[in-house]
């Protein structure tokens, strides 16, 4: 499974939706992920890929990890995998 599909599966599970309901343009708000579910999603992604994501819930905008939509999350995860596992 691709990084993209694995990330989508994690987000779908958190949002209690089917993976097919998640598009690359979906925002976390669109799919109903609140602050607590966001922190849980980030944890799940870290566990799935064995990476460490720089994210502070107090300043989500200042984080290097862009969570503005699913596409940006997938791109961020791919970069972190390359940086941390490459």
């Amino acid at each position: 499974m691709s990084v993209k599909d694995r990330v989508v599966n994690i987000i779908a599970e958190q949002a209690m939706l089917e993976p097919s309901d998640i598009t690359m343009q979906s925002t976390l708000e669109d799919v109903g992920i609140d602050s607590l579910a966001l922190v849980e999603s980030i944890f799940a992604i870290e566990e799935e890929f064995d990476i460490s994501i720089p994210f502070n819930a107090n300043e989500p905008d200042k984080s290097d990890f862009d969570i503005s939509d699913v596409a940006s999350i997938v791109a961020g995860v791919e970069k972190l995998i390359a940086d941390q596992k490459g």
Binding site: V39, I42, F43, N56, A57, N58
Partner: peptide
């Protein structure tokens, strides 16, 4: 730390 609300 897990909750990601702590300052570093």
């Amino acid at each position: 730390e897990g909750l990601r609300v702590m300052s570093k």
